[in-house]
């Protein structure tokens, strides 16, 4: 059936290696810089791997502030994920099960909201946070993150829910279950892959968010990781070693979470997107 299975296999492995190289070369450089002593990143010609690898940068990077930033990021991201997914699921359910002109109109507005440039709305939102006395609190960031991730989350989950068979819901309805019970006992369990997919998407977006985090937190103990990176960037220079060490430390937990959730995420997104 196949002409030259061995040659084909070799070509595939070569392609696999090329993809891995495309991804890993910059990452390798990042790890390499993170292991170099302070002045070595700037050697000419650039050295691929440090002469005397050192963990100095990691020790410097893992300072108390880093742990605070990490905790802040974790709290804000996870809470945002939980709230966004909850709200989006409920809304997406209504969007996928209602055929009303006004509801379609609302859906268009939800998609449009995704297009707002954040730099243009940040000062008005700041004023609202200020009025609510929420600056320098987790709440300000969580509210902002939930708002900006909701549109895509609704969109993803709506596509997913549209693909679910409705016969079960109808059967439950006929058996006398109210809409809340149908939602809780039929829809939510069936939608689990979609929920996980959306959750991972929201997690990645909020984990990296910069502009809101910068604006709404001024005290050092409320900063999140991406903003904390600025500690290494001065008016006149960047401390590359420590910055790259911090970056490696930041990416590890997300990759780990991803590795575990990969299976669900993949299944979830497709189901949503196919029926989009």
């Amino acid at each position: 059936m196949r002409r030259a299975p061995l040659a084909r296999k070799a070509a595939l492995v070569a392609a696999e290696l090329a993809v891995a190289a495309f991804v890993l070369v910059p990452f390798f450089w990042m790890v390499s810089v993170s292991l170099k002593p302070p002045d070595e990143p700037f050697a000419i010609p650039a050295r691929l791997w440090p002469q005397d690898p050192t963990f100095e940068n990691y020790i410097a990077a893992f300072r108390p502030e880093f742990r605070t930033y990490f905790l802040n990021s974790l709290v804000v991201s996870l809470t945002s994920v939980a709230i966004t997914v909850g709200l989006a699921l409920v809304a997406a359910y209504a969007f996928s099960r209602t055929k009303l002109l006004i509801v379609s109109g609302l859906l268009a507005l939800v998609v449009l909201a995704q297009m707002f440039p954040h730099a243009a709305i940040i000062i008005p939102i700041y004023k609202m946070m200020r009025a609510g006395d929420l600056l320098n609190t987790y709440a300000s960031l969580i509210i902002a993150y939930v708002s900006v991730t909701l549109p895509v989350a609704i969109w993803m989950l709506r596509g997913f829910l549209k693909g679910l068979p409705q016969s079960l819901e109808e059967a439950a309805s006929i058996d006398g279950a109210g809409p809340f019970r149908v939602f809780r006992e039929i829809v939510v369990p069936l939608a689990r892959p979609g929920i996980i997919a959306t959750a991972v998407y929201v997690l990645i977006v909020t984990w990296q968010e910069f502009l809101f985090a910068l604006s709404f937190t001024s005290t050092r103990d409320m900063r999140t990781l991406p903003v904390g990176m600025n500690d290494f960037i001065g008016q006149y220079g960047i401390r590359y070693g420590e910055l790259m060490a911090s970056s490696v430390l930041i990416s590890i937990p997300v990759v780990a979470v991803f590795y575990v959730l990969q299976r669900y995420f993949v299944a979830g997104i497709t189901a949503g997107a196919v029926k989009g």
């Binding site: 991804v23 890993l24 910059p26 990645i204 990296q208 910069f210 960037i233 910055l243 997300v254 590795y259």
Partner: peptide, 17 residues
């Protein structure tokens, strides 16, 4: 799993890199 690495890095870090 490795292919996902670039996506999980914060944009600011990717840019500095």
């Amino acid at each position: 799993a490795v292919v996902l690495l670039p996506w999980v890095l914060p944009g600011v870090v990717v840019a500095i890199l």
